[in-house]
Design a protein around this nucleic acid. Structure first.
Lengths: 343, 343
DNA sequence: TTGAAAGCGCTAACAG
DNA sequence: CTGTTAGCGCTTTCAA
């Protein structure tokens, strides 16, 4: 048994393969596979010997080779959230993980802080079978191209080109419900604290939330809009700016709960009383909103519904073995007001 | 050119391979590779034709095959956090993602809510090159076995068997600093709200945090310990139980910031004034702690340091091409008090 | 119970 | 610029 191998003793740091283990244990590759994968047709002595050889050599099977060779491929999806520092996104990630796990899918999570939309999609496309995410690049054709055939489900946006799909949110309906109730409660002069970051690194553009507000809050409310950094600090700072600029405000809608928590804090600092002097409403429905003083009223987004809807789209896509990119599948989830103390 | 292929026309729903695209475009496989991967040596007409054929067929390269064939393998790590619903863990995940991205690694994130330690490690071991995570299974030998040679870096725990490594936290030092300053501020009768969930699904066992408290807080403080659910609600409920059971308390340490925010809220509900009646201190150092009223003092954990340390361990491991599991590498990070208003 | 052969689908190295 | 030839490391037939 004096086989000359191409990778002779001159080559250093070669990967340890199943072949090395087989040779060390004095068995065939197939027997090593049987031992490593706890298969039936093997004598336990042999298994033992193989396992020891494998451990001694520090053998680790190549996940690529085994997935390639085995009929039963594992599925994986990529998830791109906007940030890990906003609980809304991580709670959505939690829901996506739950629905994915139930289907036996792996999830690769990243955030937009780690690269441009196109970079992230392009990298993920080589690693996963479908991509979910918050993508803000206006050019949908470019997004689809970067995905190289891997289906993409976008959140809070409407897909318009083949290969892209979406789970959008109906803010018009949600914000209308919110404003109606605020009016019932006596509010009439509205303000908005808008996020500056949603389209970063592109120039600022009005968000869906702002556009819905502008359409529904009444003409006099268009002057009471401030754009602030998308963070708690930004919310606090934005509130102070808004409060000073717009006397007579009695209700403020804030881009998201994180900023709204900051706004509540900012109002506190200013000695403004909530909800007596001004009502504050966030958007997202974070459970954390219940610990501010007063607790935060909000337009709650059903994260589980969003995750499930996205997963259903992918189910449909994976079953449909058609040729070519699939026409967009577009679904919508409607946020619902959640009344606590701040409004 | 009348090659008979095994997978003939009878087989349905076969995967579309590079070969199919090559045939459709009337070129070789290699040319398809060149077109798909934007390589240089190809005429743009040809590239165009291939790309069209690929799109028409709905071709998607197999990530397993391409990773197997290409010299430049991609690295991936798995990260198991305890929960996506506690910002501490997601902020740690954010840091891990940052350091991983900087090294060109992919990250597969999951949470302990999705399976047992052994299941998660076993699944991840087939998908990634190293595993980071919060694992509570007492039997380290079993953990190492489940990892099948993939190095594991455990958080908040000390590795003791080959193949496992750890980034531990020095709570004794941190809590000592905390108690010393609390005493300086006039506190003398301490209480603790401990988490019940840290060792789930195993029977409850005292956490590192509790053991450090018990060692340092003084004999009379041993009676003032309540075990509560690891959530904001649990923190509120725990505080009320503790407050009723232990008159005369003047400082309460809470297992983590999430529970501490609940405790602050619970105290509020009870009409207990903070910090006048009782000082409350959390552990974690969440920025969210700044929006409670009063804002939360805490023992802050440097999440970036934890993430970096874990990544460094893996760097070391990947370079050291030794045979067999590596002896444990153990590192420690020391939490630091962060004083805000609640204490 | 074990081994030998034949791929999985792709890319690298070379020819042409 | 394009095609041919070898593998990557593993699992699956199928024989022995």
């Amino acid at each position: 048994m004096n086989v000359v191998h191409q990778r002779g003793e001159t080559v250093a740091k070669q990967r340890i393969t199943i072949e090395d283990v087989a040779r060390a244990a004095g068995v065939s590759r197939q027997t090593v596979t049987r031992a490593m994968n706890d298969m039936a047709e093997i004598r336990s002595e042999t298994r033992q010997r193989v396992l020891e050889a494998a451990e001694a050599l520090g053998y680790r099977p190549s996940r690529f080779a085994s997935n390639l060779a085995s009929r039963q491929r594992s599925h994986a999806i990529g998830l791109v959230i906007a940030s890990f520092r906003n609980p809304y996104y991580t709670e959505l990630a939690a829901e996506v993980l739950d629905v994915a796990t139930a289907r036996g899918w792996q999830v690769v999570v990243c955030s937009r802080e780690q690269g441009t939309d196109l970079e992230l999609i392009s990298t993920l496309a080589g690693q996963v079978d479908a991509i979910f995410g918050y993508f803000v690049t206006p050019d949908q054709t470019a997004l689809a191209a970067a995905a190289r055939g891997v289906p993409v489900v976008m959140f809070e946006r409407t897909a318009a080109v083949p290969g892209l799909h979406s789970v959008d949110l109906d803010f018009e309906q949600g914000i209308e419900a919110l404003l109606t109730e605020l009016r019932n409660r006596g509010a009439s002069r509205f303000g908005l604290i808008e996020s500056d970051a949603a389209t970063d690194p592109n120039p600022y553009q009005p968000t869906q939330r702002r556009r819905a507000y502008e359409k529904l809050a009444g003409a006099h409310s268009l002057d009471s809009i401030v754009v602030a950094e998308e963070s708690m600090r930004g919310g606090a700072e934005g509130f102070q700016r808004l409060w000073n600029a717009s006397p007579g405000l009695d209700a403020v809608l804030v881009f998201n709960d994180l900023m709204a928590m900051g706004a509540v804090h900012g109002a506190h600092t200013l000695g403004v009383s909530i909800p007596a002097d001004v009502r504050i409403v966030g958007i997202d429905g974070l459970s954390l909103g219940s610990v501010t003083t007063p607790s935060l009223s909000t337009l709650s987004i059903d994260r589980l519904a969003v995750a499930k809807t996205a997963a259903d789209i992918v189910d449909t896509l994976l079953e449909a073995h058609d040729a070519g990119p699939h026409e967009p599948i577009v679904r919508t989830v409607t946020p619902q007001p959640l009344w606590r103390e701040s409004a």
